[in-house]
Design a protein around this nucleic acid. Structure first.
Lengths: 126, 126
DNA sequence: GTAAGTAATTACCATTTAGTAACCAGTTAC
DNA sequence: GTAACTGGTTACTAAATGGTAATTACTTAC
């Protein structure tokens, strides 16, 4: 084969995508990116639909990957807070870009599962 | 509560994340972002581990969301190609940022599930 | 002595998701 | 007449994922 091009056969996108995208993961990173540090309970409050189990799972995974730093004060009751590591902060730009897209699409009337207004018009005309 | 801050209670990140992140979705978008249009079989070739079923599902979902454009030539055998819509191209910047992070982390010796070299040293010392 | 507060962990079950393999259409090449 | 090509779809099965609720631990407040 001559051209692999710039696509992802052998480029390191896949493991990174696995670590930072996926259900809740990116939302957690976005929260930690805009406000830091955040305590476990505060993260729960920002994402009312997440369960403690899944939040714990994701935070552990992100910690294992060196993306999130967990800091525990062994007080009673315990206080645990989370923030992006230096490496994790490399994601700032990507997260901000994603946020901009979200704002833009929202302003343009994008509806999840339906697309943009012109798509909906096109479908109605069929 | 006084401060919702800039976090995602009521900001439009969540539906966008649902549409563009998730297993294979971001990889597909990245491929279409770097090379376009791509035929169904070409996409399969770029992602050897994906199954036709999942690729079809993701492309349909992205099409429904107005992010990907499907073009079919009714020749025999049929030729179907995919590319980002104008709206889909809004993701270029975010995808490029993500790609940069991937390259950087790779260069820094990041290992999925293990983190960065300094994390691994820290764990070994425990 | 019992509840509240905090950050989990665990077990169990339900749901979702993904993989596999077979099949379809229509024409060309063998 | 049979296989190959292309881009799928469908049915069935298997695996991963997520939710719920109970439990842990330790101290303070009632």
């Amino acid at each position: 084969m001559a051209t692999v091009g710039s696509s992802c056969l052998g480029c390191p996108m896949d493991p990174v995508l696995k670590a930072v995208t996926g259900r809740w993961t990116t939302t957690i990173l976005w929260n930690l990116s805009t406000e830091s540090p955040l305590r476990f309970g505060e993260l729960m409050g920002l994402m009312p639909a997440i369960s403690a189990k899944v939040l714990t799972d994701r935070l552990r995974m992100l910690e294992q990957n060196g993306i999130v730093l967990r800091t525990q004060k062994s007080t009673i009751p315990p206080e645990v807070s989370y923030e992006l590591t230096t490496h994790g902060q490399d994601l700032h730009q990507a997260l901000r870009s994603l946020h901009e897209v979200a704002l833009k699409w929202n302003a343009e009337g994008w509806v999840p599962g339906q697309g943009f207004p012109e798509d909906q018009v096109a479908r109605a005309a069929e």
